[in-house]
Amino acid sequence: MSTDFQSARVALGARLRELRAEAGLNGKEFAERLDWQRSKVSRLENGKQTATVEDLDAWVQAAGAEPEAADLKSRLRGLESQARSWRRQLAAGHRGVQERYVAEYRSTATVRGYEATVIPGLFQTPDYARHLLIHNAELMQSPHDTEDAVRARMKRQEVLYEAHRVFRVLIWEGALHALVCPHETMAGQLDRLVGLIGMSTVELGIVPFGVQLKLTPKHGFWIFDEERVIVETINTEFTLESGEDVALYGRVWGNLDEGAVYGPQAHRLIARARAALDLT
C-alpha cells in the first residue's frame, strides 16, 4: 500500500473521529447507534479500513453531520487515485509501457493534453523519441529495449489519423527549445510539429513566452474523454478519476488555452525555435 494512500486514509479516519467526538459519543456508543461492531468504528477511525460511500452516509447521519458528507466523499474519491512507480513499470523495459499507451489512446475519442518541457509522445519523431528513451532508461536504470519502445511509440501515433478522434494539445514554448537531442534531430522534430498544424484530428496550440497567464505553467497532464487524468512525475505516474480532479485539470487546461496561439502564429513560434538551432 502506498504511503500517500495510507496517509490519506488516516486523515479521513481522523476526520471521522472528530465528527463522532463532536456528537458527544464514545466509540462503543457510536457503534451501537450504527448497529456496527465496535471494531469497525475503530478500524475506520485509525485508517486500518477504507470506508465505502455507504459507510460515510451512515456515519454523518449517526453524528448529525449531514453537511459534511460531500467533503468526506471527496476525500474518499481522492483515495481512488492510482499511483504507478516508474521503477516498477520499467523493470522489464519501456516497450510494455508504450504498448499500454497504445491501448489507452485506442479506447479514447477526445484527448486534451499539455506538456511544459517535452514534445508529446504522440507527436515525436523516431529519432527524438529514441534519445528520450535512452536518457530515461539511464536515469531509471531500466533495461535498454529502445528500438522496441520506439516502434511501440510510433504505433501509438496511428490514432492521429483516425477521423473520429480529436487531440487538443498545448505545448509550452520552452519545450520547443529544450535540447534533449542533437540539433539536427530537434530540427526534424520541429518540422514534424509544423506538419501537424491543420490536421483535422489535431488542434495544436503553443503557449508563448511572455503571454499573460492566470497560472504558471506546471507539469504536463492528459485528460481522456473528460473521465480521467494521467499525470507523470519523475518517479510516478498518477491516474486521477474523481470528478473534482478531472474538473480541476480541465480548468487548468482552459486557463492555459486562453494564452495559447494556433495556426500561423503557432507556426511562427516553431519556426523561430528552428531558426535558433545551430545547424552549421
Rank of each mutant, 00 (worst) to 15 (best):
2 S>A: 03
237 E>D: 13
95 R>H: 08
92 A>S: 14
27 G>I: 07
40 K>C: 08
231 V>W: 06
238 F>M: 08
182 P>N: 00
225 D>W: 05
229 V>P: 03
45 E>G: 09
17 R>G: 06
180 V>E: 01
20 R>G: 07
115 E>R: 03
38 R>E: 11
75 R>D: 14
42 S>C: 05
190 L>Q: 09
149 A>W: 03
97 V>K: 09
43 R>W: 03
15 R>F: 00
234 I>L: 15
55 D>F: 10
178 A>G: 01
230 I>K: 03
52 T>C: 06
142 S>P: 02
170 L>T: 08
124 Q>A: 01
93 G>F: 06
99 E>N: 09
265 Q>A: 15
203 E>K: 13
70 A>S: 14
18 E>R: 14
64 G>R: 12
218 K>Q: 13
61 Q>M: 11
13 G>L: 00
118 V>P: 09
64 G>M: 05
56 L>W: 07
49 Q>F: 08
51 A>W: 09
2 S>M: 11
261 V>F: 10
256 L>R: 02
60 V>C: 05
222 W>A: 06
235 N>E: 14
71 D>E: 10
167 F>A: 04
267 H>Q: 15
175 A>E: 12
101 Y>K: 04
148 D>K: 08
106 R>V: 03
231 V>M: 10
67 P>A: 10
158 E>P: 01
133 L>A: 03
274 R>W: 01
233 T>R: 04
45 E>N: 10
132 L>W: 01
245 D>G: 02
164 H>I: 00
238 F>P: 00
157 Q>H: 06
61 Q>C: 02
66 E>H: 10
71 D>K: 12
19 L>K: 08
214 K>P: 00
267 H>M: 15
16 L>K: 12
223 I>V: 07
147 E>D: 13
137 A>W: 03
199 M>L: 15
264 P>E: 15
101 Y>T: 02
66 E>A: 14
34 L>Y: 07
21 A>K: 14
76 L>H: 06
51 A>M: 06
54 E>G: 10
206 I>W: 05
175 A>I: 02
181 C>A: 15
23 A>V: 08
46 N>P: 05
12 L>D: 13
40 K>T: 11
112 R>D: 00
224 F>A: 04
164 H>N: 15
32 E>H: 11
230 I>E: 09
280 T>Y: 08
73 K>D: 03
259 G>W: 00
264 P>L: 11
16 L>V: 09
229 V>S: 04
265 Q>W: 10
236 T>W: 02
215 L>W: 04
211 V>K: 01
34 L>A: 09
71 D>L: 14
30 F>K: 10
230 I>A: 01
10 V>T: 12
237 E>A: 15
95 R>P: 03
121 G>V: 10
203 E>Q: 11
258 E>W: 01
117 T>E: 14
242 S>W: 04
127 D>M: 00
267 H>D: 13
255 N>Q: 12
